[in-house]
Structure formats: structure tokens, C-alpha cells
Simulated scan of single mutants.
Amino acid sequence: MKKFLLALSLLVTATLNAADAPKAVTYEGQITGVVCASCKAHITAALSQKLTDVVSVDVKAGETPETQKLIVVAHNDSITKETATEALGTYAKNYQILSLAKK
């Protein structure tokens, strides 16, 4: 009986913790100025460190050679183009975020 109650307690605790976990939000947009792996690393580091609850940042080839696709996944539903640009800090002079929106 004790084992059953312990198992039930663990199950309830795990369920409550899962319900409290924030949902991941995916943002997609366009960015310019990314020409090499170091550029991608600068963007990834800046956004991951300065925006709260970022899970991942990815930069992929865009529709044109001048623009790249920016994908940010976070447990934060308030990221905007402006907050992402601010998070770039001094890198914002090299990379311009053209758009960023929730998917």
C-alpha cells in the first residue's frame, strides 16, 4: 500500500510540474548581414544570453541571398523585433532584424 501511495504521489507531482511548465513559443523572421558561421554565432550568443528563457536560436538561408531566416524558440511569449534588436547590442550595427513574429 505504501508503494502505491508513493507512486501515486510521484505521478501527481509530475503532472502538476508538467502543467506549470511554460509552453515553447517559436518566432520566425528575417535578418540581414549574416555572411558566415561567426555571424551566426554572434547572433545566437547575443539573443540566447540577453533574451529571457530562450531555448534555441537558428539562422538559415532565406528567400534571397541578402536575407536569412531567423528562428527563435523560447519559453517567453513577449519577444518582439524591437527586444531582439536591443538584445543584439553593438551587433545591431552589423545585423538588421527586418521582422520577427510568433508562429
Rank of each mutant, 00 (worst) to 15 (best):
V34S: 05
V73R: 14
K93H: 07
V72G: 00
V72E: 00
A14S: 15
E82T: 08
V54D: 01
D58G: 13
Y91Q: 09
A7T: 11
I31M: 05
T90I: 13
H75T: 10
G62W: 05
L5K: 13
V54A: 02
D77G: 13
A24S: 14
Y95R: 07
K2M: 12
Y95K: 06
Q96Y: 07
A87D: 02
V57F: 01
N76T: 00
L8W: 07
K93M: 11
L16I: 14
G33N: 05
K81R: 14
T67C: 03
Q96V: 07
S78L: 06
A61C: 08
F4K: 15
T13G: 13
V73D: 02
K3S: 12
Y27W: 01
G33W: 02
P65T: 03
C39D: 04
H75L: 09
A41R: 14
K40E: 11
S99N: 05
S9D: 08
K93C: 06
E82D: 11
A74M: 05
T67A: 12
A45R: 14
T15G: 14
G33P: 03
H75C: 07
T67E: 10
Q49H: 10
S78G: 11
I43A: 04
Q96T: 11
L6T: 13
V57C: 04
I31S: 07
L98W: 02
T80R: 09
K50F: 06
L47W: 00
A101Q: 12
A24Q: 11
L8Y: 07
T80G: 05
V72W: 04
G29W: 03
D58N: 13
K2T: 10
I43F: 02
V12Q: 09
A37R: 08
T83D: 00
A92G: 04
T26N: 10
K103R: 12
M1A: 15
D77W: 02
A45F: 11
A101R: 13
S38I: 09
S99T: 10
K102I: 11
V57E: 05
A74S: 08
K50W: 07
L47G: 00
V59A: 02
A84K: 02
E66A: 12
K2A: 13
V25P: 01
H42S: 13
T52M: 09
L100T: 03
K40W: 03
T90C: 08
A21N: 12
T80L: 05
Y95L: 02
L6G: 08
G62E: 00
K3W: 10
Y27E: 01
V72Y: 04
S78F: 07
A74G: 03
M1S: 15
V73I: 12
A92I: 05
P22A: 08
L8I: 08
K93V: 12
L98G: 02
G89Q: 07
V35S: 15
N76V: 00
K50H: 12
N94G: 08
T52N: 13
V57S: 01
T26G: 05
V35Q: 14
A92Y: 03
I79M: 04
A84Y: 01
V73K: 15
A92D: 06
K60V: 06
L10T: 11
L88T: 06
A37M: 09
A21P: 06
S48K: 14
Y27M: 03
H42W: 07
I31T: 03
A7L: 15
A61L: 13
L11I: 12
V55S: 12
S9A: 15
I79R: 06
T13H: 10
A61V: 11
V54G: 02
